[in-house]
Design a protein around this nucleic acid. Structure first.
Lengths: 218, 218
DNA sequence: ATTAAAAATTAGACACACCTAATTTTAATT
DNA sequence: AATTAAAATTAGGTGTGTCTAATTTTTAAT
C-alpha cells in the first residue's frame, strides 16, 4: 500500500487539474502538468488504476477514486502545512517555500500532519492564500475569484495566487504585490486580453492575460 | 551534482561507520549496515568514487573524500536538527523521531539547515544525545563513553544512546530509562558479558552486552 | 464523407539501484 | 605450503519510471 514519489505526484496533479476544470483529466494535460511524455503518463495511470487510486480507461480521461482523492488531499494538506511552517517559523519568503514543500509533502508518518497542524495553530490558509484541508480532509472553497474575471475600475484586494512557482512569485515581489495588496484594473486591451492595472494606488503597469489568471482577488 | 537518495544513504553510512572504527569501511560491513548485498555496495561505491565523494579501490575499504564528508555531515546536521524540531516543537516522542528524520534529512535547500538551526536556538545536541554539526560542519566530540566500558558500583548518568532505532528506544522507555537517568552496574556476568543494573536507584534488571554498548554515560 | 491534425497507445530501449549465483582474490589455519 | 573460509568481484537479471519512435484512434475541418 505504500506509494512511490512518482505515484504521489501523479495523484496530486490529477487532483489539482480536476479542481480547475472539473472534468476528467486527459493524458496530454497530465503529461504537460507533470512534464513527462504521454507514454509515461499512460503507464503510470495503468499502475494507479490497478491500485484503485485512479479511474481510467472508461471514456477519455482520468479521475481519482475515493481512495485516490484521500491520498491526494493528504499530500496537499502536508504541502500547505509545511509551507506555513517554512514561512512563519523558518522565515522563508513567499517564493522559496513552494519548492521545499514539494519535497516535504512526501514525508510519511501517520501523525505528522496533525502535529504540524496543532503546532501551527490550525491555520486555514497557506501563505499563497490556498485553503488547508482539515484533519478530516475537508477543504474550504478557494477564496476569491480570478483577477481575469473582475470588472475594471474597482478596487480589488489580492487574497491569493493560482501559481505558486518561484518564477511568478518573484515577479510579484518585484511589482510589490502580495496578499492584501490593492489592485485596480484600469483597462483591458482587447487585442491580446492584456490589462493595465494600478498597484496599491501607485504605479500603473501592463500585465498579460496569463498574469490576470494567476491572481485571486476578493 | 545532485545526489540520489541512495547515494546520500551510502555516504551517511560510511560516515557513521568510520567514526566508530576509525578505519576504512569494508564492503561487508557497509552491506550489513545498509541492508543491501555486497554486489550492490560495490557498484554504488564505484559510482561514488567516480563522483569523487568516496575513495575506494586502493587497499581494502572505503572512506569519504573531503567532499563526501562535507555532504555526509550536512545530512547528519539536517537529521539531528529535524529531530529536535520533531521532539521539541511537534511533541513526538523519543522513539518516533528517528524514522521521520531519516526522510527529512534528504530534503534539499541551501538554507534549510541554517534556518532550522536558528529557529531551534542553535541546539548542540539532538534528543538522543548526539552532537549537532554546526554551520561550518564542525562536530563536537560525542559526549560520554559506553556503558559497557564503565566500572561496576558507580552511579552513572545517561547522556545519550548509540542506537536510535525505535526498537531500542521503546525498550528504554519500558525500562523508564531516558537521558538524565541514573544507572549503576551491579554485576557483570562473565559467561556472556551481560550485566545486572540498577535503574534510578529502583528496579534491578539484567541486560545484554549489546544493551551496554548502546548507552552513553557521563 | 474525406482528410488532416491531435490525442492516445504500443513497442522497444534505457538508467538506476537492486538482486542471485558464480568466480576470484585475500586472509587465516593447520 | 596447502587448505579452507571469508571477502570481494563479476556476470547477468529484475522492477520502476522514464524515454523515443512508430502506430492507431479520435476529433475537427473542409
Amino acid at each position: 500500500m505504500t506509494r512511490t514519489l512518482s505515484e504521489e505526484n501523479y495523484l496530486k496533479a490529477i487532483f489539482h487539474l480536476s479542481r480547475n476544470s472539473k472534468d476528467k483529466v486527459s493524458i496530454t494535460t497530465l503529461a504537460a502538468a507533470i512534464e513527462n511524455t504521454a507514454a509515461s503518463v499512460i503507464s503510470m495511470l495503468r499502475k494507479l488504476t490497478a491500485k484503485e487510486l485512479v479511474d481510467y480507461d472508461k471514456k477519455k480521461g482520468a479521475s481519482l477514486t475515493h481512495a485516490g482523492e484521500k491520498v491526494a488531499i493528504d499530500i496537499v494538506r502536508k504541502h500547505r502545512l509545511w509551507e506555513v511552517l517554512l514561512a512563519e517559523k523558518l522565515e522563508f519568503s513567499w517564493e522559496e517555500i513552494h519548492d521545499i514543500a514539494e519535497q516535504l509533502e512526501h514525508v510519511h508518518h501517520p501523525e505528522l500532519a496533525d502535529r504540524l497542524d496543532k503546532f501551527l495553530g490550525f491555520p486555514a490558509f497557506d501563505p499563497h492564500g490556498h485553503p488547508i484541508p482539515d484533519i478530516k480532509g475537508h477543504i474550504s472553497k478557494e477564496t476569491g475569484k480570478l483577477l481575469s474575471e473582475s470588472a475594471t475600475g474597482l478596487e480589488l484586494e489580492v487574497v491569493g495566487v493560482k501559481d505558486s512557482s518561484s518564477m511568478f512569485l518573484n515577479y510579484l515581489k518585484q511589482l510589490d504585490i502580495r496578499i492584501g495588496s490593492k489592485l485596480i484594473i484600469e483597462q483591458i486591451i482587447e487585442f491580446d486580453q492584456s490589462a493595465v492595472i494600478k498597484i496599491n494606488n501607485g504605479n500603473t503597469i501592463s500585465v498579460s492575460r496569463k498574469f490576470l489568471e494567476s491572481i485571486l482577488i476578493s
